[in-house]
Write a protein that binds this DNA or RNA. Structure first.
Lengths: 360, 360
DNA sequence: GGTTGCGTTGGAAGCGCTTCCATGTAACCA
DNA sequence: TGGTTACATGGAAGCGCTTCCAACGCAACC
C-alpha cells in the first residue's frame, strides 16, 4: 500500500465521517493542520493560496480540508487581519416595493455574492445621522460595498466614497470620476430601440425621460435623439416629456404624451412604460396598433401581461462584474475605473412593424 | 474643581476630539478602559450591562465610551464567544421581483434590524446542495435567521429548524409546532373584509384562494367561509377558485371568476387581485361598479393606480417583532412560540357600499 | 478584633485565524 | 567542501473582545 493509497483511504474515511455527522461543524484550521501533519501556519498558507508551500503539501492539505468539510471561520479570519469575504449592499431608506430596478439589482447582487462565496450584508441607509452605513463598515463586518447609482447625491454615499472604503457603484456618478463604476450601455441601446420603432414605420415617436440629474436618464434621452439624428429626423421639444422613473409618473403623463400625438413612445424605464400602458388601455388605445410602446430595464415581469419592447439589463452579469470588481478592489488588485456591460435590446409585442401586425 | 467637573471637562475634550477626526475609527475597548481607569474586563462588563459593576463606574465608562465614539468591533465580539448582533434573512433562489410580499417583508426586516442595531445578512438559498445557508451560519457570521414561511417545505428550512440555529418563522408552519412563529392574523381579518363586501350589498362574492398547502392561504379561505357563515349564507364550490398567489394566476383566473358571476371577489392576496383587475378592465368590467374587488397584504402600491380594499399587513411591526423575538432567542431568553399581529382592514375604492357609489 | 462573606475588580486565557520572524534544510556557487 | 542563497516550515504574537478565576477590599458578623 503506497502512501498515496493510504491517504486516499484515510480521506474516504474522513469523508464518510463528515457525512455521517450531518454537518461537520466546527472543523478548525487546527484540525486540518493536525490531520495533515503540518502547522497551522502552513495549513493557512496552503488554503489561502499564498506561496511558500511545497506543491504536494498544499495538495494534501487541500484534500484533507475538503474531506473534513473544513470551512474557515470568517469571523476569525477577519479579526486576524484578513478579509471577511463579506460585502455590503446599501438599501435606501425609501420604499423599494415599486422600484423594480433596485429589486432586480439587489437580487442580482445576492446571486453573484452567493456564487462567489461572498457574504452579503444589507446595509440600511437609516434616516438618522448618516453614520449608519459608516458604522457597519467600521464595525468590521464588511470589506466593501456595492451601491446603486440611484443613491448618488445622498450624503452617506459621498461619505463612503471619501472614506477609503472599497466601493463599487452600479451606474454612473454624475460628478466624480474617481469612483469605480459598472454600468450598462445606455445610449446606443436606447438609440437602437427607438430606431426599431422608427423603422417599424412610426411617424412620430416621443419619449418620457427620467430625471435628468441622473446620468442614465440623460444617456437614454441622448439615445432617443441619436436614433432620430441617424435617420435625419428632427426632435421637437414637444416630443420629450419628463417623468421621474416611477410607474405613477408614467400614468400621470399619459395625457401629456397623447397630446403630442405620437404613434410610438419610448419610456426611459419599464415602470413608466407600464404606467403609460395602463393609461393607454383605459383610454382605449391599443398597444401596439394605435401606439407602440417601449421601455428600458427589462423589469416588467410576466405578471404584467405584456411582452414589452425594452432594453433588458443583464442584471446577473452586471452584478457579477460589480462583485468581482469589488473583491478585486478589496484584494488590492488594480481594476479599471469604468466598466460597461452591454444589454440586450428586446422587441416584444409592443413594438411591431406595421405590416407584421395582425389585422385589427 | 471637583472630580466631577474634571471629568466633564475631559469628556468635552474627548468629544470634540472625536468629532474633529470625522469618524473616530478604531476606538477599542482598551482605549475606553484606559481612559476610564479600569481594566478591559470591567469596561466590557459595564458596557454590556453585566452586573458586578459599581454604579458610578458603569456610568463613567459609558460616558467615556460615548464621548470617544466607541463602537465595539462585532467581529471580535463574536469570536470571543459573544454574539455578532448580526442576523440573517433568507432569500429564496427564485425571482422575488413579482413577489411583493417577500419584498415588503424583507424591507421590513431590514428596517427592524437597522432600528435594533442588528446587522442583516442576506442569505441566498442557492440551487446547489442545500448547504449554503447552513454554511453561512457555521461560518460564524450570523447568530440566527428569520425566514419567511413561503420557503417552508424547502429542504434547507427543515435543516435549519433541525439544527439548533435560532430561527424565527414569519408565517405559520403547516406541520411543526416546535418553531417560533410570528404571523399576521389571517382568518378574522379576511372574514371582516369579505364581510364588508357582503354588507356592501354584494349578492355573490367569490374568492380566488392561494395554494392551500400554505397555512395563510387556508386561513384566508376559512375567513371567506366564516364571513358567509356569520351571515347565514352558504358557500358553493363554484365560488372558490384556486390560484397560486401570483399576479399571473390572478389574470389567468379572470374567466373562471366571471363564470361564477360574482359581484364581488376576494383575492387571497393583492398580486392576484391586481391580475384580476387587469382582466376585468380588459373585459370592460368596472371595479367597483360592476364587481367589487378585495385583496390581502397591502402590497399594491400607488403606482398601480387603484386604492384596493385589502388587509394591510403591518410589515414593520411584523418584522420588528420577528427580529426582537430572534434576538431574545439568541440571548437565551424565553419567548412565546407563537405571536400573532393584527393587520388593518382597509376598504379602498374597490369596495364601496352600493348607495355610496357615484352615479354611473 | 478576627473572621466570614459578599460584591468588585484585574489578570489572563482563549475564540480561530493570519502573518512576522526565526529556524531548518536543500540547493547553489566558488 | 565551506559558505551562501532560496525556499519551506513551525513557533508565537496578536487581532478586540468575553469570561473564568483569583485577589482584593469592605461591611457585617460572632
Amino acid at each position: 500500500m503506497t502512501w498515496e493509497d493510504r491517504l486516499q483511504t484515510e480521506v474516504r474515511g474522513l469523508r464518510s465521517l463528515a457525512e455521517e455527522e450531518a454537518v461537520a461543524d466546527d472543523v478548525t484550521l487546527d484540525d486540518v493542520a493536525r490531520k495533515s501533519g503540518v502547522s497551522r501556519a502552513t495549513a493557512s498558507r496552503a488554503l489561502n493560496g499564498r506561496d511558500g508551500v511545497r506543491g504536494d503539501v498544499r495538495e494534501r492539505v487541500e484534500m484533507i480540508a475538503k474531506a473534513l468539510g473544513y470551512r474557515p471561520n470568517r469571523t476569525a479570519k477577519r479579526l486576524a487581519g484578513g478579509t471577511t469575504s463579506v460585502i455590503g449592499f446599501v438599501l435606501g431608506s425609501n420604499d423599494i416595493l415599486g422600484d423594480s430596478y433596485a429589486i432586480s439589482l439587489m437580487q442580482g447582487i445576492a446571486r453573484a455574492a452567493d456564487r462567489l462565496d461572498e457574504g452579503l450584508m444589507l446595509l440600511m441607509d437609516s434616516a438618522e445621522p448618516s453614520v449608519s452605513v459608516r458604522n457597519l463598515i467600521s464595525d468590521g463586518l464588511v470589506d466593501g460595498v456595492v451601491i446603486s447609482a440611484v443613491a448618488v447625491g445622498e450624503r452617506w454615499v459621498e461619505d463612503l466614497l471619501d472614506a477609503r472604503v472599497p466601493t463599487v457603484l452600479v451606474g454612473a456618478h454624475p460628478r466624480r470620476s474617481d469612483v469605480h463604476v459598472i454600468d450598462v450601455e445606455n445610449r446606443n441601446s436606447s438609440a437602437e430601440l427607438v430606431g426599431a420603432m422608427l423603422d417599424a414605420d412610426c411617424e412620430r415617436v416621443c419619449t418620457v425621460a427620467g430625471p435628468l440629474e441622473r446620468v442614465d436618464a440623460t444617456l437614454r434621452l441622448e439615445g432617443f435623439r441619436l436614433a432620430h439624428e441617424i435617420r435625419g429626423l428632427t426632435v421637437d421639444d414637444a416630443s420629450i416629456i419628463h417623468g421621474d422613473f416611477s410607474r405613477a409618473s408614467g400614468y400621470a403623463n399619459v395625457d401629456a404624451v397623447l397630446r403630442a400625438k405620437p404613434d410610438g413612445v419610448f419610456a426611459a424605464n419599464d415602470e413608466m412604460a407600464l404606467g403609460l400602458l395602463r393609461g393607454f388601455t383605459e383610454q382605449g388605445r391599443d398597444v401596439p396598433h394605435d401606439i407602440m410602446l417601449a421601455g428600458f430595464d427589462g423589469t416588467a415581469c410576466e405578471g404584467e401581461g405584456i411582452s414589452l419592447a425594452t432594453v433588458r439589463q443583464p442584471f446577473d452579469q452586471l452584478a457579477l462584474t460589480a462583485v468581482e470588481t469589488l473583491t478585486a478592489l478589496i484584494r488590492g488588485e488594480p481594476v479599471p475605473l469604468e466598466q460597461v456591460v452591454n444589454p440586450e435590446v428586446v422587441l416584444g409585442d409592443s413594438v411591431r412593424r406595421r405590416e407584421d401586425l395582425p389585422e385589427w
